[in-house]
């Protein structure tokens, strides 16, 4: 494995540990400035949505629909109706595999 990949492993581990430690150490009992908290509180939603659509609606550098698109959409409908994480993920896998098998 290239040294660049090991650098990525180490770098990701360090930033993750520092981020997870920062709140408990530095902000013990205190709150983030409201503006910072507002942006950070929304970052996960924006990034998660971006990760999901670039997996479900794109293939590399082009927009593309495929069996996994349908699987993820079905999971989304299930989650919106209150399905558990296992049911939603299971539905996504089954729908994707079935559509691939028949296509």
């Amino acid at each position: 494995m290239s040294s660049e990949l090991w650098l990525i492993v180490a770098g990701t581990a360090v930033v993750t540990a520092v981020i997870k430690a920062t709140g408990p150490i530095a902000l013990g009992g205190r709150e983030l400035p409201p503006r910072a908290a507002g942006v950070i509180g929304l970052l996960a939603s924006a990034l998660l949505a971006a990760l999901i659509v670039t997996e479900a609606f794109a293939d590399g550098d082009r927009l593309a629909l495929g069996p996994q698109t349908a699987g993820v959409v079905v999971a989304g409908i299930a989650f919106a109706r209150g399905a558990s994480i296992l049911v939603g993920v299971g539905l996504a896998v089954v729908v994707t595999a079935l559509l691939r098998a028949v296509s």
Binding site: I8, T12, I19, K20, G23, L32, I40, G41, L43, L51
Partner: peptide, 27 residues
Amino acid sequence: GAGAAILAAALMNSRFLPMGAALAPSL
């Protein structure tokens, strides 16, 4: 590259800042 990858990881994990801050009084 490595820079984009680590930056994306840091941004993705930035949600742990407010989550950790909320948890802090209970530690």
